[in-house]
Design a protein around this nucleic acid. Structure first.
Lengths: 105, 105
DNA sequence: CGTTCATTCTACTATCTAGTAGAATATTCT
DNA sequence: AGAATATTCTACTAGATAGTAGAATGAACG
């Protein structure tokens, strides 16, 4: 699996996207992240490992905890590739931007 | 699997991303697309089905062929979500844009 | 109408993934 | 050192996915 496969498949899971959303607002330990989900700690630890392998997050130790931080450069790469597929459609994209301002997940 | 899971997992395969890149430049039949890969027709047909289910492409019949077209609105949704995770990092993103201008896959 | 072309569907195999349980490791506290 | 906390690792199960072969469908052509 190449880098881009790892990147997009890491994003293809709603638990992982939610972790990413949380971590994009504040650094957190793995334990703090795990509290929010009805899953065993081991499962969340695995999800975080997937995000780390995709380089969407990085970890550093602080005492006994591991602190998780987002890696914005990797998100930028994902965005860049999506834009490539849509490059020709730039005009329509601008119209879509307007449309999307009202929409929310 | 929800819409966003389908969208990102459709993107998490290099054959499918390549199909998307091809189709973003010109409409093509499934047969024309399949010529470019060392895979059986059935396998490519399946990949195209995955892209269609994710609404990244749509198909319409022209005579005996099925013509594949990109759906830019779906790419816009993917981009929007990626930007959400990176929202706080907007400043750094602008610097990254500069960096990425030189990089290529 | 029977054949050919383009594509899909069904069935099967091999490989991958998500989740869980429980043992193992690293760090801190007493 | 020994107990407690935070996290990872190993092993396992159930379900998903990629690829292939071959039958089935839909449209066009002689």
């Amino acid at each position: 699996m190449n880098d881009l496969d790892l990147l997009f498949s890491a994003l293809a899971d709603s638990t992982r996207r939610d972790i990413l959303a949380r971590v994009s607002e504040a650094e957190m330990s793995i334990g703090q992240i795990a509290e929010h989900y009805g899953l065993k700690f081991g499962s969340i630890s695995k999800h975080i490992k997937v995000l780390e392998t995709a380089r969407l997050i990085s970890k550093h130790r602080r005492g006994r905890e591991q602190i998780v931080t987002i890696v914005p450069a990797t998100l930028a790469i994902a965005r860049k590739h999506i834009e490539r597929y849509a490059a020709i459609w730039a005009d329509r994209f601008e119209q879509l931007d307007e449309l999307l301002k009202e929409e929310d997940e």
